[in-house]
């Protein structure tokens, strides 16, 4: 049997493939259904946060920041409650990261405010002396791409049944409304204006009022929602 395999490249290839595929199959597939179940209270991202999440991805923030708090006392002391499977149910893609050049951000919304973030993104060393994080000033002028964020939300709603426009906790109210692009956009602008005002930066407020959401505002909305 073995001598035959050595001389028949085709069956040899099939053999290699089966061995490597089978291992992956057993390792990954069975846990799929269970781990995608959201924890109670987990909600899909609203439009502005989803747009902010896209900014987070575009700027590869996950190259230096994790979003995964491990169950050790030293980690929960520093970052808050350890992370649970179901909290990530609406994360496509996941953003756990693999390196903490900067601190974990999974619950950053609990202990940082909008104006702290704005100052920090403008000049990190102004709020964290000694920080090696660079400033992200271009986020203060780039306009948020709400349309792509809406396209993503609508895609996950259609394809993966992510519960937008649904009553999740049974209180008779829709938890995360999406609706049409116009409706979603209007809500996003209301949220954006609130955050822009919280940052106490006039340029951001003016820009939102002029009909453009700066990327940093969306990013702050996303980070404020990380709890």
């Amino acid at each position: 049997m073995f001598g035959w395999l050595e001389r028949n490249p085709f069956f040899f290839a099939v053999g290699v493939f089966l061995v490597i595929a089978f291992a992956g199959l057993i390792e990954i597939v069975p846990d799929f259904a269970q781990q995608s179940r959201p924890v109670a209270g987990a909600k899909p991202y609203d439009l502005l946060r989803l747009a902010g999440r896209q900014v987070y991805i575009k700027e590869s923030c996950n190259a230096c920041h994790s979003q995964l708090i491990r169950p050790f006392k030293i980690e929960t002391d520093r970052y808050g409650m350890y992370s649970l499977n179901g909290e990530y149910a609406y994360d496509r893609p996941f953003l756990w990261g693999s390196k903490r050049t900067g601190p974990d951000l999974h619950r950053v919304g609990n202990y940082r405010t909008s104006d702290w973030h704005a100052n920090h993104m403008w000049d990190p060393t102004s709020v964290v002396p000694g920080s090696i994080m660079p400033a992200y000033k271009h986020l203060f002028t780039n306009e948020t791409d709400l349309e792509t964020a809406y396209a993503e939300a609508l895609t996950v709603k259609k394809v993966f049944n992510v519960p937008y426009d649904k009553d999740l906790d049974g209180d008779g109210k829709i938890d995360v409304p999406l609706g049409t692009f116009e409706e979603a956009k209007q809500r996003a602008f209301q949220d954006a204006l609130k955050i822009a005002e919280e940052t106490k930066r006039k340029d951001l407020v003016d820009m939102v009022k002029a009909g453009k959401i700066p990327e940093v505002v969306a990013l702050i909305a996303y980070m404020n929602g990380l709890k």
């Binding site: 061995v19 291992a23 057993i26 069975p30 846990d31 259904a33």
Partner: peptide, 18 residues
């Protein structure tokens, strides 16, 4: 239980490969 099935398959594969 799917967990059990996974364990059995895993074990079976290891024995087979060995």
């Amino acid at each position: 239980d799917i967990k059990l099935l996974q364990g059995v398959m895993y074990f079976g594969l290891i024995v087979f490969l060995t």
